[in-house]
Amino acid sequence: MSRKGPIPILRVGNVLLTTIHIDLQDTIAAAFQEDVLTEIEKTGAHGIVVDISGLDEVDTHVARILAETGAMARLMGTRAVLVGMRPEVAATLVRMGYAMGAIETALDVDDGLRLLGGRPKG
């Protein structure tokens, strides 16, 4: 695997799963987006689940990177689902006026994978 950034991207069936556990500073963010797109091309994944349950704070900079990544994946024909947003993070983003309407969301990784058909129900 020739990842550029420190964020791992796993393959689960025919979807990708990535967990963001570190700060998305500019260089890391750019590498992450490129890694996601490269993996989509390499694996032909039809969806990607982006888990942010480990982030206790998401500012508009990080929110924009996540929304952009979803838009990039979509241009390649791959659905992106953002999962695991904490209650306080959701409340803060909406209070700021950043509703993230551009990206699909689900409660957690299980729901995200189910939404993309990567895991059978039950």
């Binding site: 206790d56 704070e57 500012d59 900079h61 209650p87 306080e88 993070v89 409340a91 803060t92 700021m96």
Partner: peptide, 26 residues
């Protein structure tokens, strides 16, 4: 975040304060 947690801010107030700090520092 460290200061807010030590002073008893709840999770929502902590997220608001630290997000504000991120935005303004950026």
């Amino acid at each position: 975040r460290m200061l807010a947690q030590a002073r008893g801010f709840d999770a929502f107030a902590c997220a608001a304060l630290t997000t504000a700090a991120s935005e303004l520092a950026r």
